[in-house]
């Protein structure tokens, strides 16, 4: 438990990262880098959870936070993202 601050002000921006929403996922998006152009980054643009990172090697899914909504797979113009059942 955190201490309460004066006026409930939270001095810690972005601290929602302490909570890993990846545990919500039932379907896991997996990128096929054979198909991915590594250029369009639609998966990055359309992620509601800031769970896709733009890197020089293309998009990187941050599974700690990905809720498995499937938007990235649905919107991928190259159909390079597959949703596979979460194993755990």
């Amino acid at each position: 438990m955190a201490k309460v601050t004066v006026g409930a002000v939270n001095p810690d921006p972005g601290s929602s990262r302490n909570y890993e929403t990846g545990s919500w996922r039932t379907l896991k998006p997996v990128i096929d880098f054979e198909k991915c152009t590594k250029k369009c980054f639609f998966c990055y643009d359309f992620c509601p959870d800031s769970a896709v990172e733009k890197t020089d090697d293309g998009p990187k899914i941050i599974y700690a936070y990905c809720k498995g909504c499937g938007i990235c797979a649905y919107e991928c113009p190259k159909e390079a993202i597959e949703l596979v059942p979460e194993e755990k």
Binding site: V9, N10, P11
Partner: peptide, 21 residues
Amino acid sequence: PYGVLDPEKPMTFGSFGTPEY
């Protein structure tokens, strides 16, 4: 004394307070 709305030091004012807090 405890900071203000300022991009130099971002803070969240008006948090959601659950029964725990």
